[in-house]
Simulated scan of single mutants.
Amino acid sequence: MSSRKRPAAPAGFPGFLEPAKPNLLKVAPYDEKWIHEVKFDGYRIQAGIHASEVTLWTRNGYDYTIAS
């Protein structure tokens, strides 16, 4: 019996992953354990690359990919 481990099988492409919802606060927490960002006007986009194909999703999971 060999002591060598077999490589893990590749996982399938997950597609859209629902992002964590941000909390609206009047003052950002101040502590070295916290990381935060200011949300300016604009879009939050999630990008996925699978088999050389890029897909863009909005935070609600809508396909925002622009066909070329």
Rank of each mutant, 00 (worst) to 15 (best):
residue 1 M to H: 11
residue 2 S to K: 10
residue 3 S to Q: 11
residue 4 R to N: 08
residue 5 K to A: 15
residue 5 K to I: 09
residue 5 K to P: 07
residue 6 R to I: 13
residue 7 P to W: 04
residue 7 P to M: 10
residue 7 P to R: 09
residue 8 A to F: 13
residue 9 A to V: 08
residue 9 A to W: 10
residue 9 A to G: 08
residue 10 P to W: 00
residue 10 P to S: 00
residue 10 P to N: 02
residue 10 P to H: 00
residue 12 G to Y: 04
residue 13 F to M: 03
residue 14 P to F: 02
residue 14 P to W: 01
residue 15 G to F: 08
residue 15 G to L: 03
residue 16 F to V: 04
residue 17 L to K: 13
residue 17 L to W: 03
residue 17 L to S: 13
residue 18 E to H: 06
residue 19 P to N: 11
residue 21 K to R: 12
residue 22 P to Y: 00
residue 23 N to H: 04
residue 23 N to S: 05
residue 24 L to W: 09
residue 25 L to S: 09
residue 26 K to S: 10
residue 26 K to F: 07
residue 27 V to M: 11
residue 28 A to W: 00
residue 29 P to N: 12
residue 29 P to T: 11
residue 31 D to Y: 04
residue 32 E to Y: 07
residue 32 E to N: 10
residue 33 K to M: 06
residue 34 W to K: 04
residue 35 I to D: 06
residue 35 I to E: 06
residue 37 E to D: 09
residue 38 V to N: 01
residue 38 V to R: 01
residue 39 K to W: 04
residue 40 F to S: 02
residue 42 G to R: 00
residue 42 G to I: 01
residue 43 Y to D: 12
residue 43 Y to N: 02
residue 44 R to D: 08
residue 44 R to T: 08
residue 44 R to S: 04
residue 45 I to N: 00
residue 45 I to K: 07
residue 45 I to V: 15
residue 46 Q to F: 01
residue 47 A to E: 12
residue 47 A to W: 07
residue 48 G to I: 02
residue 48 G to S: 13
residue 49 I to D: 02
residue 50 H to I: 05
residue 51 A to P: 01
residue 52 S to N: 09
residue 52 S to M: 04
residue 52 S to W: 02
residue 52 S to A: 07
residue 53 E to C: 11
residue 53 E to S: 13
residue 53 E to P: 04
residue 55 T to F: 01
residue 56 L to Y: 15
residue 57 W to Y: 07
residue 58 T to D: 15
residue 58 T to G: 12
residue 59 R to L: 02
residue 59 R to T: 12
residue 59 R to I: 09
residue 60 N to S: 12
residue 60 N to W: 07
residue 60 N to P: 01
residue 61 G to D: 07
residue 61 G to A: 00
residue 61 G to F: 03
residue 62 Y to F: 10
residue 62 Y to H: 11
residue 62 Y to L: 08
residue 62 Y to V: 06
residue 63 D to M: 03
residue 63 D to T: 05
residue 65 T to K: 01
residue 65 T to D: 00
residue 65 T to N: 02
residue 65 T to R: 00
residue 66 I to M: 15
residue 66 I to A: 14
residue 66 I to G: 05
residue 66 I to N: 06
residue 67 A to H: 13
residue 67 A to I: 14
residue 68 S to W: 08
residue 68 S to Y: 07
